[in-house]
Design a protein around this nucleic acid. Sequence first.
DNA 1: TTGTACGCGTTATCAC
DNA 2: GTGATAACGCGTACAA
Lengths: 339, 339
Amino acid sequence: MTVTLNNIATELGVSHMTVSRALKGDPAVAEKTRNRVLDTALKMGYRPNASARSMRSGQFGTLGLLAGSITSYLPGMLMRGIRDGCEKLDLHLQIDSITQEQADDSSYLPRFLQYACVDGLMVSYTGPNAALANHIQQQRLPAVWINDRQTHNAVYPDEIQGGKIAAEHFINHGHRRVGYAALNLTDHFSTNDRLAGINQTLTASGLSEAQRLDGHLASGSEIDQSGMPVLLRMLQRPDRPTALICRGQADATCAYAAAMQLGLRVPEDLSIVAFSDKPILDVCALPIDTLVIPFRTLGEKVATMTHQLTQDPSHQVASETIAYGKIESAGSTTQPTLS
Amino acid sequence: MTVTLNNIATELGVSHMTVSRALKGDPAVAEKTRNRVLDTALKMGYRPNASARSMRSGQFGTLGLLAGSITSYLPGMLMRGIRDGCEKLDLHLQIDSITQEQADDSSYLPRFLQYACVDGLMVSYTGPNAALANHIQQQRLPAVWINDRQTHNAVYPDEIQGGKIAAEHFINHGHRRVGYAALNLTDHFSTNDRLAGINQTLTASGLSEAQRLDGHLASGSEIDQSGMPVLLRMLQRPDRPTALICRGQADATCAYAAAMQLGLRVPEDLSIVAFSDKPILDVCALPIDTLVIPFRTLGEKVATMTHQLTQDPSHQVASETIAYGKIESAGSTTQPTLS
DNA sequence: TTGTACGCGTTATCAC
DNA sequence: GTGATAACGCGTACAA
């Protein structure tokens, strides 16, 4: 059924080595021999056997991506960056996901880790995953951690700098009361780092720290109306912020809806900026200024670092941070209305 | 560097076959031998060599997913379904993307097709792709087409049935003037099939066909304000629809924003239902009833069919359609206000 | 219960 | 220019 070098060779009455050389363009093959080979290879539908090739080279030319939930928690731009990075390195990309529970279960060795045709692993998980890390190490698989603040073998955005950019944005527009909405219950370092950056900038400008709008969105559903009461309460207070920095897209759309509901105009009564992996305007037509998380660059860097680790698995690599760019304006910022 | 069966064997003074048998739990291995093997295998960090295994078995145990743009046009639930399908079949998943131009270019043979460690391919492209199809066939790669209405080797949603569901939904609520918003310039069959289903149901109930709101959203950006004028114009006409079926999420959020802008209340003045891969409420907090495209089931079916084709590549498989479920209510439908 | 021999398809090496 | 041979790591088939 499958066509091999030998099939072609016997068909042509040459040795399989001649065929191999001809196919890879070795100049030490006679012009007409090469052409004959190329012709019959095409005719017979030859397809190089990647297993055999991998066996010789000792490499698959493939990286694996292990993520919590492929569905929703893998930002498109991260995928894009990783793919582009892989393409530049001439690598293939394999993906799999295991649940958080499985990742925490030291008795569960993912099929993926043991049997997948990959040279290295890129891991996207929030929080500590000792069990998973153990398994990976035990499998001697080079691994890079995505968006996790570790000292080695990790790549993550510079969230403190991101917070500073957001705060400066509002300070430059003349705001003096800035809020920080983090309605999701999450212990990812970005939540606190962004706030830290914001507060550093605010206090350096002689302003008071950001008013926090914490809430509890029911987990499981990305957006839940239960965060709304918190927002409504805060936005009705006389000392309410005139500008709001939102931890994520869900916070921002909730805030927008809350403002609408209270008859507050955006941006005249309330300016909004949100962190998100995509400009929010593009996602749901709401004109909200967005500080785009640099996932694309991050993804490329992850691929590069994993490849590097693949080439020399004996050394760890120092982690890298990725810088934020500029805020993408959609019209949700203006000066505060004097009150 | 890498540990092989032979390494373990010499270490223990046995043959590599004993090790192999012990590791795979062959009962014909002495209790204590097995334990010794398992111990040292763990200690030495043994990792089965997938290349060698694949070479023996003639299979990678991996399916490939080739899509236009990983970033935005691969719905999360499709990924989820495909992954789940693969897991059930004990298969790995590899992904890659090439641009539409590359897919149409007969001189461009994607690296992926030739060298990837995959047994079969799942292809997600809109429109005809003769060049790509040729390449795939030439590579003797079993392939299944995702969301493409072909007679063989394809899986796609029953869009006509979907249109019927949406139309019935409004008819049951007493609406008599129904609109269909397809602001995106796309020639995917779903655009017309949905409309066909809608019109079949409307005319069967003695109503006139759906008023069409076609527009031209600039390609490249998912949502462009340029679709807005069309909506605004249509919604101001005296015979405007009281209920709107939206082709996709972008159409729906645009429509919602347009209604807001005109002072029309949703749902009192305008009821809305949209096709989308996820409930729109979950994506951007806008309460819009959604007819969720059955991508998850579709993805599982795609994996199954591809696997089947992998096992017997000589036969084509008849395409399958996936049925729509119920509309997920978010509060954007009510009876029409009598005018 | 354990060991030996061979072959999977490819590429590197050396000989002609 | 071309061919013969060996080797990669594993599993099947058979022998001990």
